[in-house]
Design a protein around this nucleic acid. Structure first.
Length: 193
DNA sequence: CTTTCGATCCGT
DNA sequence: CGGATCGAAAGG
C-alpha cells in the first residue's frame, strides 16, 4: 500500500508545512465528531533556534523526532495546548504547528468546548483548535493515521492562494518566512503584529 | 536547586 | 496591554 503521508517526508520544513494547507483534521475524541480544514500552519525545523527540537531530543520533544504523521502536543504558557504534525524523515526534529482550521463538522460541540457562540473564533488559533477538537496530552505521540485524531491528505493549494509570512509569537529566527495561510479565508488567526 | 520565560487567549 | 498558570530549560 502507498504511504498517504509521503508528501510530509520532505526534509524541508517549510515545504511540508505549506503542503498541509487544505488537509483535513478529524477528531472523534470523547465519541464526538469534530473536524476542520487546515488553513494556517507554521514550519519548525532542527536547525531552527525557534524550534523545540533545536537542542536535540528531550522527553518533551521526542515525538518531533518520530515519523511524519505523528502528533506532537505540548503545553504552552501553563494553560493552553498546541498541536503539531510531525514532518520530515524519521529521526529528524521537524514539525508543522497547526495554527487554524476552517470548521467543517461538529460545530455545536466546538462551541460548547470553546464556550463561545462565535463561529469565527472556534478554531482560529493554535490553542483554540486544540480546545475545539478535544486535543490534549493523551494524544501526544499519537499516529494521525488512526482514530481518535486523523489527518486526511488533500491536493496542494494553488500557489497564488498561499500567503507566506513571519511566524507568530517567537523572538528567535525572525528572518524565516515560515508561516503559511490561505488567502481570502476568514478562519485564519489574523494576528496583529 | 532556583530562576526564567514561553510556537496563547481573553478581557480591558 | 497585562494577567493567568505551569513545566522545560538554562544558569549557578
Amino acid at each position: 500500500m502507498t504511504d498517504r503521508y509521503a508528501p510530509l517526508k520532505d526534509n524541508d520544513p517549510a515545504s511540508t508545512a505549506r503542503q498541509l494547507l487544505g488537509w483535513r483534521l478529524v477528531s472523534t475524541v470523547d465519541g464526538q465528531l469534530t473536524a476542520g480544514t487546515i488553513v494556517e500552519t507554521e514550519a519548525y525545523g532542527e536547525e531552527d533556534a525557534a524550534s523545540h527540537s533545536f537542542r536535540g531530543p528531550t522527553p518533551r520533544t521526542l515525538p518531533m523526532f518520530g515519523p511524519a504523521g505523528t502528533a506532537y502536543v505540548y503545553l504552552i504558557y501553563g494553560l493552553h495546548h498546541c498541536f503539531n504534525v510531525v514532518t520530515g524523515p524519521d529521526g529528524r526534529g521537524q514539525a508543522a504547528l497547526i495554527r487554524a482550521l476552517e470548521p467543517t463538522d461538529g460545530w455545536e460541540i466546538m462551541r460548547r468546548r470553546r464556550g463561545t457562540d462565535s463561529l469565527q473564533s472556534l478554531c482560529s488559533g493554535p490553542a483554540k483548535l486544540c480546545q475545539a477538537l478535544g486535543i490534549g496530552p493523551p494524544l501526544n505521540g499519537h499516529s494521525l493515521a488512526q482514530p481518535p485524531l486523523q489527518l486526511l491528505p488533500s491536493s496542494s493549494p494553488l500557489p497564488n492562494q498561499v500567503i507566506t509570512d513571519t511566524r507568530i509569537g517567537i523572538t528567535k529566527e525572525r528572518g524565516r518566512l515560515w508561516r503559511f495561510y490561505l488567502a481570502d479565508n476568514s478562519y485564519v488567526s489574523t494576528y496583529k503584529k
